[in-house]
Amino acid sequence: MSATQVSTDRAPESSSRGLVLRFDGVERAVHWLNASLFLILVGTGAALYFTPLIALVGRRRLVEEIHLYAGLALPLPVLLGLAGRWGRALRRDIGRFNRWSEADLEWLHGLVDTASGRRRSAVRPALGKFNPGQKLNAAFVAGGGLVMLGTGSLLRWYEPFPLSWRAGATFVHNWLAVLFVLVIVGHISLALADREALRSMFGGRVSRGWAARHAPAWLEEPADRP
């Protein structure tokens, strides 16, 4: 193993120039595949729904097919990214998403207090690799994605289902799509506001300084065993 070996998700001792690996290649590939599929889904979804866009694009059958297959493909990058040896970093991160610490609750309280003006500056509890906002976002995307898959499938293969279910599925699918767009716009805004975090979704690494500011408890974690 060389000193620049980056097969684990964190190797502070062996990192060069004080960089820490935040996302490995598999995680980045999963992220960007998801992002591309998401863009296709939003674009085709809008072209199936909004009259001015329908006027511009038309070709409903083709757009429906693209939307359908992009939707059915959406879980694949994550599932493939989780499987086998190369999925270790992603599996470990998903474990992190599902664990809530005292510091997370403190951070959320601080956020509420700051927003309501009860406190001047945000508290800085020792968070782990992901902050509570990121954890909630992950839970929303995973749960909401499955709901979109379920309601979308019902709308595609609707014949066995009563009309009121189809109406309900349309209702859920459309409103959840609006919510998804809002959440993703928020996600992109936050990413653009923190260029170092954004760069790590391309290059994989952040500085130790960034990690110490945003995720101090992550730096304290025992190194991942190979």
Partner: peptide, 19 residues
């Protein structure tokens, strides 16, 4: 995540009324 799934199922069953 489970709560999001639950809401989705409820919405499908009763969404037409909410709609």
């Amino acid at each position: 995540m489970l709560s999001v799934l639950g809401l989705g199922a409820l919405g499908t069953l009763f969404g037409s009324h909410v709609q």
